[in-house]
Design a protein around this nucleic acid. Structure first.
Lengths: 137, 137
DNA sequence: AAAGTTGGTATCCATCAGGTACCTGGGTAC
DNA sequence: GTACCCAGGTACCTGATGGATACCAACTTT
């Protein structure tokens, strides 16, 4: 089965390839700790900052605003400021953002089917690694 | 649209929730720099260590063996040692591992459709951020 | 005897994500 | 006066990730 794994030398090595690889860009959108959770909390519709902060019980202000800033920069979330008093800021998934949650659903679906197998494999592996070393007969 | 975002307080906060969240376990399988690339290089069939090292032009021995060790622990890859000389070690995707590449394909598919939009959004956002600050009329 | 091949491990170091703590600043409630 | 709400910003600290380098144990080749 000849799948088309690229010849990385043509890109100047793996490092250079990773910098131009679009799936990698997408993958990195979700690698940060809070991204998926914040997007999940926005699925039901727009939310304001303090609502999110409560929904994501335990997130710090810094990480919430940092995560939202990144999502906004990537075009996944809009930020709307109402110049009322007290100030109010709404965050809402864009169409792009909603479509991106499809990836999270795919991960969730696979996790539903296979996460237990992964966890079991880890347990087995760790148990084997902890065994007393073989006597060198 | 009432999607079922969990009440994190019931888990003792987001931090505690993340520790038991299976999609999170799966997500973290792919967060490390080389995982996806190594799995991609194994799609065509079993490969030995030095073949992978050449295919992943630029990866260090340490990172390759570390990544493979993690994949083996998660049950995605098997490691077969041939006690020949010089030593030979084959790595091969398990059925679980092959099914996990489906996630990478989903990411790749979404990237094909939307990565440009994300990149464009970033450019726009960065340009706006670099604008001279508004005069406070 | 020296050097190469294979598949590693050990050690040190730089970078960075994430967390803590404290700041702003206008307005309201006590 | 004091304290707290909102929506953040900023400085500093730490632990994990990953990279560079050196070393290793066979055994073969030159």
């Amino acid at each position: 089965m000849d799948t088309n794994f690229p010849d990385l030398r043509q890109f100047g090595g793996a490092e250079a390839f990773l910098r131009v690889c679009k799936p990698r860009v997408v993958l990195e959108m979700f690698t940060s700790k809070w991204t998926a959770l914040v997007m999940g909390a926005l699925l039901d519709g727009p939310r304001r900052f303090s609502e999110l902060r409560r929904a994501l019980d335990g997130i710090t202000q810094k990480m919430l605003s940092q995560t939202l800033r990144t999502l906004e920069r990537d075009g996944l979330v809009t930020r709307t400021v109402f110049p009322t008093v007290p100030p109010r800021v709404d965050y809402e998934l864009t169409a792009l953002g909603r479509s991106a949650t499809g990836i999270l659903e795919a991960i969730g679906a696979w996790a539903g089917e296979h996460a237990d197998a992964v966890i079991a494999a880890r347990t087995t592996y760790d148990a084997r690694a902890a065994e007393p070393p073989r006597p060198v007969t």
